[in-house]
Simulated scan of single mutants.
Amino acid sequence: MRKGFVKAVACENILMAPRFDPKKDLVNLSGRVVIVTGANRESGLGYGTVRHLARAGAKVYIAARNEKQSLASIEKIKAELDGQTHGGKVCFLKLDLSDPRGVKKVAEEFMAKESRLDVLVNNAAIVFVPFEKTSDGVSKIITTNLVGPFVFTLTLLPLLAKTAAQEGSDVRIVNLTSLVHYIAPKIKKLKTLDDLNQEFRRRPLSAFTRYGHTKVLIILWTKALHTYLNSPSTSSALPGTERITAMALDPGSVDTFSVRWPLPWLWRPFVRLVMTAPNLEVGTHPMAFAAAGKKIRDGKEAYGGRFLNERFKIAKPSRNARSEKISADLWTLLEKIKKDMGL
Rank of each mutant, 00 (worst) to 15 (best):
M1H: 11
G4W: 09
F5T: 02
V6K: 09
V6Q: 12
V6L: 11
A8E: 14
V9K: 01
C11R: 12
R19Y: 14
K24T: 15
D25S: 14
L26Q: 04
L26M: 10
N28M: 07
L29Q: 05
S30M: 10
G31C: 09
V36M: 07
V36K: 02
V36N: 04
N40V: 05
G44R: 00
G46Y: 10
G46W: 12
G46I: 02
Y47V: 01
T49L: 02
V50Q: 01
L53T: 03
R55N: 06
A56P: 10
A58L: 09
Y61A: 05
I62V: 10
I62K: 01
Q69I: 07
Q69M: 07
A72G: 10
A72D: 08
I77F: 07
A79M: 13
E80P: 12
E80G: 05
G83L: 02
T85C: 03
H86Q: 04
K89E: 05
C91G: 01
F92E: 00
L93C: 05
L93G: 03
L97R: 00
P100N: 00
R101K: 05
G102K: 03
V103Y: 02
K105A: 07
F110T: 01
F110L: 06
K113G: 00
R116Y: 06
A125M: 11
E132Y: 15
E132R: 15
T134C: 07
V138G: 00
S139G: 15
G148P: 05
P149H: 06
V151I: 14
T153M: 12
L154P: 08
T155H: 00
L156M: 13
P158R: 02
P158C: 07
L159A: 08
L160D: 13
A161G: 14
K162G: 15
K162T: 15
T163P: 13
V174K: 00
N175L: 11
Y182M: 04
A184N: 06
P185E: 09
P185L: 03
D194N: 01
D194G: 04
D195M: 09
L196T: 04
N197I: 14
R210N: 14
H213C: 06
L220A: 03
H226A: 12
T227Q: 10
Y228K: 00
S236G: 04
I244E: 01
I244C: 08
D250V: 09
P251Y: 04
D255S: 09
T256M: 02
V259L: 05
R260N: 11
F270G: 06
L273F: 13
M275V: 04
A277F: 15
L280V: 08
F289Y: 15
A290T: 11
K295C: 08
I296M: 07
K300I: 13
K300E: 09
G305C: 11
L308A: 05
N309V: 05
N309C: 09
K313N: 13
K313L: 14
K316Y: 12
N320W: 09
A321I: 13
R322S: 15
I326C: 03
A328P: 12
A328Y: 08
A328K: 02
D329G: 12
T332A: 13
L334M: 15
E335P: 11
